[in-house]
Nucleic acid binder design. Sequence first.
DNA 1: TAATTTTGAGACATCTGTGTCTCACTTCGT
DNA 2: ACGAAGTGAGACACAGATGTCTCAAAATTA
Lengths: 208, 208
Amino acid sequence: MATDRDTVLEAAVGVLSRRPTAHMDEIARAAGISRATLHRLFPGREALIRDVGRLGLERFAAALDTAAIEDGDTEAALRRLVDASVPDAMLCAFLAGENQLYDHDDINDLWEVQIARLHALFLRGQQQGVFRIELSAAWLSEAFFDLVAGIGWAIQDGRLAPREAAFSLAELFLGGALRRPSTPAPTAPIPVGPTHSTSDRKPETDTP
Amino acid sequence: MATDRDTVLEAAVGVLSRRPTAHMDEIARAAGISRATLHRLFPGREALIRDVGRLGLERFAAALDTAAIEDGDTEAALRRLVDASVPDAMLCAFLAGENQLYDHDDINDLWEVQIARLHALFLRGQQQGVFRIELSAAWLSEAFFDLVAGIGWAIQDGRLAPREAAFSLAELFLGGALRRPSTPAPTAPIPVGPTHSTSDRKPETDTP
DNA sequence: TAATTTTGAGACATCTGTGTCTCACTTCGT
DNA sequence: ACGAAGTGAGACACAGATGTCTCAAAATTA
């Protein structure tokens, strides 16, 4: 009995994240309501998936808030973000797979705001000398979200125990994103820019 | 003019990886052919996306082959795999998003074989002391594929330069997957099992 | 209990995408 | 140049999903 809108949306995610083309029939059954009631709650399929996307973005924004990613040490902030976003990993998985959502301006704006916050976190961490600067903040943002989505898929399909999720995500991602402890972080901020640093491979001009 | 089947499939990926619900009309236009010819090449939409999935899996299998992941040092093998799989990252992105493909037994079998090979690579690397044992080989396999898919999406949307792709993937993933150089790898294989090692957090019994 | 509201089940029209066909045109090979 | 094969554009019927409606049953409230 899920008469609440948000409850229905969460049930819808469980179906849509695995089968994006699921019919309204299946979604209604997954939510434990009839197709008629589903149509009473949401004007149509379009509105339903749009609201699912909006819910996902709101949850992710809330995770960024509760993690207080703008404050304090960036590594600690990222660890908080992992803990805060893993419970909603399935929503993120849906967002990652449903690129079509971003045709709507409001959804797209909401998305860009959150990604910008994530980007700022990594940029700040790089300036603090916490995160590696050979990897662009944009790529770090993208990869982090991809891994959150991967966590969501893996949990949903039973390939990953929910209890291990946060640990697995944090250890793998931070291992790749943090500067090696052997190179101690300087006290002064590091200039982050087009400089290509100690990488053994240097990306040159783009040529497909 | 893409009359060749594989050429059409590659063009189809470009559309389907972003919009899985794209109509036959769009796919045909993306391939530069008419809808009639598209139907002449593939019996129907079902067969088309099935063949796209099959192509993706064959490419990934070929990448595993050319990387010779079964031979030699596991870190070097993984670096070779990165280089070999990045060119087909968009195919992998399609595979990651299209869970519906795995209803077909042949596709599912092909998938499981490749994942098993990936899993074996990580397990071997863990036994060699190259990869961390706090992260399960299953999660490493999954996360690696997720990141390859993320690379594909990022390249397609122009958020990541193709030249930086292999470097970004290798550095981020290996950073998280490799054992810290500070803990030197022993010469004898490490027993990999249910033992929970030096992790500061211990996953206990599953409770949703 | 009675009245009001909400829900479920089914029927229905509509619409969109798919699959098939035909025909004129282009391209290739001889 | 001629014939053969392939292609593109369009028309068409069909199938399936969507959206709307009605009515009976259930749940809520007074």
